[in-house]
């Protein structure tokens, strides 16, 4: 019997756990929030973190209380809705894991878990654990696209892209727009998110045409919306659930400087 298999058997014993929760409750954007303590028994280690919150909410509703509001939709790590700051980490302790992919088996019996919303000036709290991430849409609308009207696209294989570039573009494009990078950063910088989009498009031949204008417009919007600067702490990369690399920021800075210098040369 391999060790892995032994671990599985231990896991399968599935002993119910007690979980102590300290959750940020805030009625709406205007009111002041506070932590409230809850205790849950009979939590199965097989539950996902959100299923544990579902169980808490069922209990709260049945007792006549107000359930905890949190964002979620796909519950499989792809939509970017879920956004909980758990025990000091965006998306909790797991590496490259979204909140919805986190399972109770990552915690200990009797452990206290502190749950907060993303904290950043540009992401105001709406209610409890839900924040407003509309700023990200605004940054994309500033230039995170290729200007191609429907119907005017050339035959797909007439645009050749080196496989390694396409693969790298894919890696950058796998950002789910969750905002954990902002929540992780002491400056609340959105550089990782913005640079991922800029890199994706700049790495592909079809995106190169507007690369300079794009970087200028998106960075300007990011600054305007009050996101902080990057001081190279790498917290964003460490907490990003999709493994978006800090090298994207380096690429963005290179393009940005290129765009600034380039704009001084008038043909």
């Amino acid at each position: 019997m391999t060790i892995d298999y032994l671990l599985l058997i231990i896991d399968k014993t599935n002993k119910p756990m007690n979980i102590k929760l300290k959750i940020w409750r805030q009625k709406n954007a205007k009111s002041k929030g506070k932590f409230v303590n809850y205790s849950l028994d009979d939590v199965s280690p097989e539950m996902s973190f959100l299923e544990m919150l579902d169980a808490l909410n069922t209990k709260l509703i049945e007792e006549g209380g107000d359930p905890v509001a949190f964002d979620h939709d796909c519950r499989e790590g792809i939509c970017g809705c879920c956004s909980l700051y758990i025990n000091g980490h965006p998306h909790g302790p797991g590496e490259k894991t979204t909140t919805c992919e986190l399972h109770i088996r990552s915690f200990k019996d009797g452990q206290t878990i502190v749950v907060e919303p993303w904290r950043a000036k540009s992401f105001p709290v709406i209610k409890d654990l839900i924040v407003d991430r509309n700023a990200f849409d605004k940054i994309i609308a500033a230039g995170g696209f290729i200007s191609v009207d429907t119907g005017s696209a050339p035959e797909a294989n007439s645009i050749l892209a080196k496989k390694e570039h396409a693969d790298e573009a894919f890696d950058s494009a796998s950002c789910i727009g969750c905002g954990a990078c902002v929540a992780a950063c002491k400056n609340a910088s959105a550089m990782l998110f913005v640079s991922a989009k800029i890199s994706q498009l700049a790495l592909l031949p079809q995106g190169k045409v507007e690369a300079m204008e794009r970087v200028e417009a998106m960075v300007a919007k990011m600054d305007e919306l009050g996101f902080g600067n990057c001081t190279n702490t790498y917290a964003c990369e460490a907490e990003c659930p999709k493994g978006i690399k800090i090298t994207n920021i380096a690429r963005m800075n290179r393009h940005f400087i290129g765009a600034k210098i380039g704009s001084q040369i008038k043909q």
Partner: peptide, 22 residues
């Protein structure tokens, strides 16, 4: 077919062969 052209032009990083085609 036009859909694939459109999405590719919009920057969708579809998987590619070594020669650069889709």
């Amino acid at each position: 077919n036009a859909t694939i052209d459109q999405l590719t032009a919009q920057g969708v990083p579809f998987a590619r062969e070594y020669g650069g085609t889709l």
